[in-house]
């Protein structure tokens, strides 16, 4: 599996916030079809890496390449258009939209008609509508929210809200999806559901990069794991290697006091 083409390549990615390095010279390569995890103690810069790749923040140094194309500091919506989407840590959703409406916002990359054409009820516009709704139905089925179609997002259970977040990201038909702590705040049952879903995403041929605290989930799910500490990558390898890596153990023990 590691022999496949690299789809996402970070090299020398660095971010300073007012003189402090939040992320320092991180390089990482993700291959097509992999599930890669980024772990590390609190404040290690994991989410910042996501924010840099998805261009929420601008890089201080370094480059990000996606499909061999330089996407460093591209506008966030352009990054998404390339096929790289992300979810957010907390329950960032359109809370007073229904599940369907949430997914529809995620479907916008599939829309081909212009804003002006949409003012009229042309046949192409109607066909467009039907197509998009079909995509949305498919996604709701996929993340298991078909029965909650007209429910407001804020009324969903926590686990379902996280599923919806992934559904919005999946709706843009990405090649790579970045999941920010997908199982945080979940009970064991919800966690295993989420793990099944993430495997299903990979089985659709979508590469997965995730940030997670839960070691059981990371070790059970990921093909490869990278460890960040104080913004620097201190280790990378298959889960077994990471579990026995001295500097990783030290980083976690050091952070535990």
């Amino acid at each position: 599996m590691n022999q496949k083409n690299p789809i996402l390549e970070l090299s020398g990615v660095t971010k300073y916030f007012g003189g402090l390095a939040a992320v320092n010279d991180v390089s990482l390569s993700v291959s097509e079809g992999e599930i890669v995890g980024i772990i590390g103690p609190n404040g290690a810069g994991k989410t910042t890496v996501f924010n840099l790749v998805s261009s929420v923040y601008k890089l201080t140094h370094g480059t990000v390449k996606f499909n061999n194309e330089d996407i460093t500091n591209l506008k966030p919506h352009r990054v998404a258009a390339k096929g790289l989407v992300r979810t957010f840590q907390a329950n960032v959703l359109f809370k007073d939209f229904t599940v369907l409406e949430n997914i529809l916002v995620g479907c916008q990359l599939q829309v081909e008609t212009s804003m002006f054409m949409d003012l009229f009820n042309f046949r192409t516009v109607r066909a467009q509508r039907e197509k998009i709704h079909a995509v949305a139905d498919n996604i709701m089925e996929f993340v298991g929210l078909k029965n909650y179609r007209d429910e407001l997002a804020q009324n969903l259970a926590h686990g379902h809200q996280r599923m919806l977040g992934i559904g919005i990201a999946m709706a843009s038909h990405p090649q790579l999806i970045m999941l920010d702590e997908p199982v945080s705040g979940m009970n064991n049952e919800e966690k295993s559901e989420m793990m099944t879903l993430i495997r299903k995403i990979r089985d659709r041929g979508i590469t997965v990069l995730l940030v997670e605290h839960d070691m059981r989930v990371v070790m059970g799910l990921c093909d490869r794991v990278a460890v960040l500490n104080f913004g620097t990558k201190i280790a990378e390898g298959v889960p077994e290697e990471i579990q026995n890596n001295a500097s990783v153990i030290e980083a976690y023990l050091g952070a535990d006091d």
């Binding site: 998805s54 992300r86 939209f97 804003m115 990201a169």
Partner: peptide
């Protein structure tokens, strides 16, 4: 028509979570 079309949905989504819309590929400014 403007509001009933997808544009209306997008406009309403921005005050709630514009980052999420943007990282779904929506060019908010437009």
């Amino acid at each position: 028509r403007f509001e009933k079309s997808r544009t209306g949905l997008l406009l309403k989504s921005f005050p709630k979570a514009d980052m999420l819309a943007e990282s779904s590929g929506v060019y908010i400014m437009k």
